[in-house]
């Protein structure tokens, strides 16, 4: 009983893809598991689970972060966007469209993380060179090594967005 009090669950409030959620979580709950198992948002994947691969990338208060290395309690009062929150009324985000048009995926496991990192990249650098895209993806690994099409997908999206910052 004493241990239960000592490790008491903590109430949190988060806004995910525009929807407010309140929950009570064990402090050791990682944000990626909170999203996947409490909110059933399974877009953020658990890949390496060691903050290397980027498959769990989401936006936390507008910044790309690795949700396997953040505690759910640290996201209290935060705004979160996951890959599920990119499309609006059935219309894909240009980065999602780019991955379809340029076939920026093979097995698809890394894709949600790649897309979330790319969205953040284009928000800060709307017209990146190939080198800047590759540098911007340093925190995302594709085990199929399909990087050429991933880079082309992001270039396609940048052109579709007209080099403008369409922060949403």
């Amino acid at each position: 009983m004493a241990a239960e009090i000592e490790f008491a669950a903590v109430p949190i409030k988060v806004t995910v893809n525009g929807v407010k959620h309140e929950a009570v979580v064990e402090p050791r709950t990682l944000l990626v598991y909170f999203l996947r198992e409490h909110l059933n948002l399974t877009g953020a994947h658990v890949g390496c689970d060691t903050s290397q691969c980027g498959a769990c990338t989401i936006q936390l208060n507008g910044r790309a972060v690795k949700s396997c290395t953040i505690l759910a309690v640290q996201a209290n009062e935060a705004e979160i966007t996951t890959v599920e929150g990119l499309a609006r009324e059935g219309v894909l985000h240009p980065v999602q469209e780019g991955f379809r048009e340029k076939h920026g995926l093979q097995c698809g496991y890394c894709t949600p993380g790649m897309i979330m990192t790319a969205v953040s990249l284009l928000e800060t650098n709307p017209n990146p060179t190939e080198e800047e895209i590759r540098h911007g993806l340093e925190g995302n690994l594709c085990r199929c090594t399909g990087y050429i099409n991933i880079v082309e997908s992001i270039r396609w999206a940048a052109e579709k967005m007209g080099g403008k910052n369409v922060s949403r």
Partner: peptide, 9 residues
């Protein structure tokens, strides 16, 4: 240090 996401955190 690290990568983009790590530097954001």
């Amino acid at each position: 240090i690290g990568d983009v996401q790590v530097r954001n955190r």
